[in-house]
Computed example of a mutant assay.
Amino acid sequence: MEWPIEARVTLLGDVYPFSEDEQEWAHKQYIAKHPHGLSEQWGNFHYFRMQNISDIYFIGGFGTVAWVDVKEYEALQPDKIAIDGGEHNLKELNAIFSKPLRELLASESEVDDAALISIDSKGIDVRVRQGVVWFLFFDFLAKVL
């Protein structure tokens, strides 16, 4: 199995369990987002809340690692494209552009598959498979939105 290289983050801080009253609410939120989640298999599944984030460690792949300033992070706003249906937009864009993108890239060398894997106001990431998986990153010339 091939694992995609995607950015990830480690948050460090104080973690507390939800109160008994909040556990049911949290479980409903989890099931709504992950309808086929594994929580039903465990009888002692509990939900927690992180408060007072003390450190953030970002791993972006391809050697990109950095500590993120907590105050700067807390001041950020979510990317509009990502919160306004980023996954839905990717499905639509791939339905329209995946084949032409694969054909365009194949004009230089054989390409098995090409797909947009993420999009935000700064650019797009494309996964290209040529026997092995390659990732291409395209920055927009200016921030979109």
Rank of each mutant, 00 (worst) to 15 (best):
I31Y: 02
V65G: 01
K33H: 10
F18P: 00
D120K: 05
I119W: 01
L38N: 13
F97K: 06
Y73T: 01
F48M: 11
I56V: 14
G43Y: 00
V111G: 04
V65K: 12
F138G: 12
K71Y: 04
S109A: 15
I31P: 00
S118A: 14
K99H: 10
K122F: 14
S98L: 03
Q41G: 09
S107R: 15
D21A: 14
L76G: 05
A115S: 15
G60A: 04
W67C: 03
Q41V: 04
E74G: 13
V68I: 15
E92M: 12
Y57V: 12
A114T: 08
I31M: 12
G60V: 02
L136P: 00
E22L: 13
A32G: 03
E24P: 00
L93N: 07
R102Q: 15
A114G: 04
I59Y: 13
F135S: 10
F137W: 09
G60E: 07
F58S: 02
N44H: 12
E40Q: 10
Q77K: 15
L141Y: 03
K80P: 06
S54D: 05
V128I: 14
A32H: 11
L90Q: 05
S54Y: 00
A95F: 06
D112H: 11
P17F: 01
S121D: 08
Q23P: 01
Q130R: 15
F18G: 01
V111S: 07
K122M: 14
G37T: 03
S19K: 09
I31H: 03
D120E: 10
G61C: 03
L104E: 13
K99Y: 07
D125I: 07
S121P: 01
Q41S: 11
N94H: 10
D55L: 10
M50I: 05
E24N: 06
I31T: 12
N89F: 10
R127E: 14
I124G: 00
S39W: 08
F140V: 02
H46T: 15
G60H: 02
P78N: 11
H27P: 00
A114S: 06
K80Y: 08
I56N: 05
F58N: 03
I53N: 01
D21C: 00
P35L: 03
I81H: 05
G123L: 01
L93M: 15
E74W: 04
N94F: 03
I56S: 02
L141D: 12
G63C: 02
K71V: 10
L141M: 09
H46D: 07
A106T: 09
D113S: 14
Y47K: 06
G37C: 04
A66S: 15
G123T: 04
K33P: 00
G131W: 05
